[in-house]
Amino acid sequence: MIELIKQFLMTFADTFYDVIPIITIFLAFQFIVIRRPLANPIKLGIGFFYVLLGLTLFLMGLEKALFPLGELMATQLTSSEFIYDTPSYSDIHWGDFYWVYIFAFAIGFSTTIAEPSLMAVAIKAHEVSGGAIHPWGLRISVALGVAIGISLGVYRIIVGDPIHYYIATGYVFVIFQTFKAPKLIVPLAYDSGGVTTSTVTVPLVAALGLGLASTIPGRSPLIDGFGLIAFASLFPMITVMAYAQLSQWYADKQNKIKQEESK
């Protein structure tokens, strides 16, 4: 119990230390530039305390429950004993790694659903769009994007292709979709690329990439282990725009049916 409290205080201090620059900037601008007292300072203070407390408990819990297990799992799934029943790789075929792809997909999807910053953006988008963008629709399409992105990124590490071919192709897709998708969704879709990868996803995904790159001969963990986050930030843009395109297509179809019925 004492151990737990000590851990709590240390994590809390770390989190607090990280937000000191933000607090300083806000207070400085509030009192020097805007020169007005804060509205509702007590409520803001309590809310900010909740944010810190929440993040602290969240990180502590992840450290305790998920990260050790998830990281161990990533290492075990990518080890040659698991894939070939032998301690070394003789002839590598990308198809042999099917459990790794499934794991990459599943862990990408599930960690994104639990990502607090994505929840924040989904709440805001729901509010700003007047309810047109459903939080779950956004979160599920982003999570699918991360899942696809990480699986593809894992495939790239296994076959050893240069990363920029994939990223450049993804960009072409994004640009093409930008001109086809409903205008309202485009900025939100662009944003969803950046918000997906924070507290929960990064440590687990990094462990997966490093595990793969260090077990496959010819890959360097320092060079090939990177790049999964880039995939996880690119594909949500594509899936979020696709989600909007599909919803629009569906709505158009319903309208057509209604029009035909009213004739």
């Binding site: 737990l4 809310g47 407390l53 819990g61 429950a65 998920l66 607090p116 924040a120």
Partner: peptide, 28 residues
């Protein structure tokens, strides 16, 4: 047992974060 405690902490943490978000970060 540790995993169970960890999960409880994560659930509480996420809850406080979301409540605090609407009270402070968004309005600020």
């Amino acid at each position: 047992f540790n995993i169970l405690i960890g999960l409880l902490l994560v659930v509480l943490g996420l809850t406080f974060f979301i409540i605090g978000l609407e009270m402070s970060l968004f309005p600020i």
